[in-house]
């Protein structure tokens, strides 16, 4: 039991990531506010970034910069961090694009609540069909 707890505590970044992931997923799936959905997506992505970076980390390792001061030291794996930089760039572009869409939706409907938008849209559709007949 003690060993199990020890392992759990040693691997805390993964638990943090799992919790973050669930918070993000819950926010995306249950909130109807567009901005909150977007924030949820960003939280989810951070969880995955954390998993990657934690996977590349070595306890007691140093940053992989070659110099005389730390020759012979254990370096952490730089690859996951580099990959996550790409991931962050992607997430920034997704966020920017989504914000632009939110601005467009707000201008068209005057609200950023998805349910309210759906209601407004069905009203417009009904008006349209009345208009045609």
């Amino acid at each position: 039991m003690k060993e199990l707890f020890g392992k759990l505590i040693m691997n805390y970044p993964y638990f943090a990531a799992a919790i973050l992931f669930m918070i993000g997923a819950l926010t995306v799936l249950t909130r109807s506010d567009l901005l909150k959905k977007l924030i949820g997506i960003n939280i989810m992505e951070s969880a995955i970034f954390l998993i990657f970076v934690a996977g590349g980390n070595i306890r007691g390792g140093v940053a992989p910069l070659l110099s005389k001061a730390n020759s012979g030291a254990v370096y952490v794996n730089p690859l996951p961090s580099a990959l996550m930089l790409t991931g962050i760039v992607v997430s920034v572009s997704v966020t920017a694009f989504a914000l632009a869409l939110i601005v467009r939706l707000h201008r068209a409907y005057g609200t950023i609540d998805l349910q309210r938008i759906a209601e407004l849209r069905s009203e417009v559709a009904m008006d349209d069909s009345n208009h045609h007949t």
Partner: peptide, 26 residues
């Protein structure tokens, strides 16, 4: 506006998917 709405829905779902894919790759 309908196009923007559809695109937003798509963006959220698809980003959810690609986040999962990235996790799998991790």
């Amino acid at each position: 506006p309908r196009a923007a709405e559809a695109a937003f829905k798509y963006l959220i779902m698809a980003t959810l998917g690609s986040t999962l894919v990235m996790g799998g790759i991790g």
